[in-house]
C-alpha cells in the first residue's frame, strides 16, 4: 500500500499529492509514468510522475478530475493509501545537451513536463518554457517551472494572466524572432500538441510529444494503448510514452481516447451517487 503524505488542490479539479513509494522514487527517470489502482475494484490508470525525492522515497502525482478514478483520488486524504502503484514505466526521456530546448506545457501537461524540463536544464541546455492554460486559475506549477527554466513565458487563452493567446502563438513569435531552437518538447491536451506540431513542422524543428492513450497493464502485454507513429503501430506504454511529434497520428489518438466515453460516464455517475471514501475535497468543496 502506498501512503499519501501530502495532498493539495492546486486548481479547480486539479490535485497534487506526494506519495510514499521508495523503490519507484529511486528508479524513476524523467518522462516515465506509473499505473495506479485506488482500491480492489478500481481500474488501472496511468499518470506521469511529476516529481520525485529519492532521499525521502516519495513521488509526486498531479491529476485532473475527469473520470471515476481521478475523482475518487480527489476525495483521498493525507494518510489514505493507494491500493497499487506500479512503475516506473515507459522509456525515459532522451536527455542530453541539445543547445536550446523549448518546453511547451498546456493545462495539466505542465506536470509531466516539469521533470523533463528539470532534466534538460541540469544537462546544461538553455531552457525556454512556455506554459499555457485557458485562464489564470488553471495555470499550475508556474513557480516550480521558473526554477528550472532560463526563460519562462506564460500565456492564457483569455488574457487573464501573462500573454493573451495560445502557446502556439508564443512559440511562433519565438521562431519569428529568429531564436535558435534545437528541440521542442510539447505535453498537453491532444489538440494543443497537434497545433504545436503544426508550427514546428513548418519551421522544421524536432519535436517530442508525450502521449496519454488508454492503458490497462502498462507493460506491453495488452496493446490497448496502440498509437500510430510514422504509419507504424506502436504501444504507448513500452515504445513511448514519448514519440516524434511530426510522425504521430493525432486524429487516431483522439478517437481512441473517446472509446469508453459512454461507460466512463456510467461509472462516474455511479460514483457520484455513492459515498466512497473521505470527501474533504470533493468537487464543489475546497
Amino acid at each position: 500500500m502506498f501512503e499519501i503524505l501530502e495532498k493539495e488542490r492546486i486548481g479547480p479539479g486539479v490535485n497534487r499529492a506526494v506519495i510514499f513509494a521508495p523503490e519507484i522514487a529511486r528508479a524513476h527517470k524523467p518522462g516515465q509514468f506509473i499505473i495506479l489502482r485506488t482500491h480492489a475494484d478500481g481500474e488501472r490508470i496511468p499518470l506521469t510522475i511529476a516529481d520525485k525525492d529519492a532521499d525521502k522515497g516519495t513521488i509526486t502525482l498531479v491529476w485532473q478530475e475527469v473520470g471515476v478514478t481521478t475523482y475518487y483520488m480527489g476525495t483521498m486524504c493525507v494518510g489514505d493509501k493507494l491500493q497499487d502503484l506500479c512503475g516506473p514505466l515507459g522509456k525515459p526521456t532522451h536527455i542530453e545537451k541539445f543547445g536550446t530546448v523549448v518546453g511547451i506545457g498546456g493545462g495539466i501537461g505542465v506536470a509531466p513536463l516539469f521533470p523533463i524540463t528539470k532534466g534538460m536544464h541540469d544537462a546544461g541546455n538553455h531552457v525556454i518554457t512556455i506554459v499555457g492554460a485557458r485562464t489564470e486559475g488553471l495555470l499550475i506549477m508556474t513557480e516550480d517551472m521558473r526554477k528550472v527554466s532560463d526563460e519562462l513565458l506564460i500565456a492564457t487563452d483569455d488574457g487573464s494572466f501573462g500573454i493573451h493567446g495560445f502557446v502556439t502563438q508564443v512559440l511562433q513569435s519565438l521562431i519569428d524572432k529568429g531564436t535558435k531552437i534545437d528541440l521542442c518538447v510539447a505535453i498537453g491536451p491532444v489538440p494543443m500538441m497537434r497545433a504545436v506540431v503544426k508550427v514546428t513542422k513548418a519551421a522544421n524543428l524536432p519535436t517530442v510529444v508525450s502521449l496519454n492513450p488508454i492503458m490497462v497493464d502498462g507493460t506491453g502485454m495488452c496493446g490497448a494503448c496502440r498509437v500510430e507513429v510514422g504509419g507504424k503501430t506502436m504501444f504507448g506504454c513500452v515504445d513511448g510514452p514519448e514519440f516524434d511529434g511530426h510522425e504521430v497520428d493525432f486524429e487516431l489518438l483522439m478517437k481512441r481516447l473517446a472509446m469508453y466515453k459512454g461507460p466512463e460516464l456510467i461509472a462516474l455517475n455511479k460514483f457520484r451517487e455513492t459515498d466512497r471514501g473521505c470527501q474533504c475535497t470533493f468537487p464543489g468543496g475546497a
Binding site: 475494484d41 481500474e43 488501472r44 490497462v216 461507460p263 466512463e264 456510467i266 461509472a267
Partner: peptide, 13 residues
C-alpha cells in the same frame, strides 16, 4: 483480471 463483467461495480469497462 479487472472483472469488467461486474462493471459498474468494478470500475473497468
Amino acid at each position: 483480471l479487472m472483472k469488467a463483467y461486474l462493471f459498474p461495480q468494478s470500475d473497468t469497462p
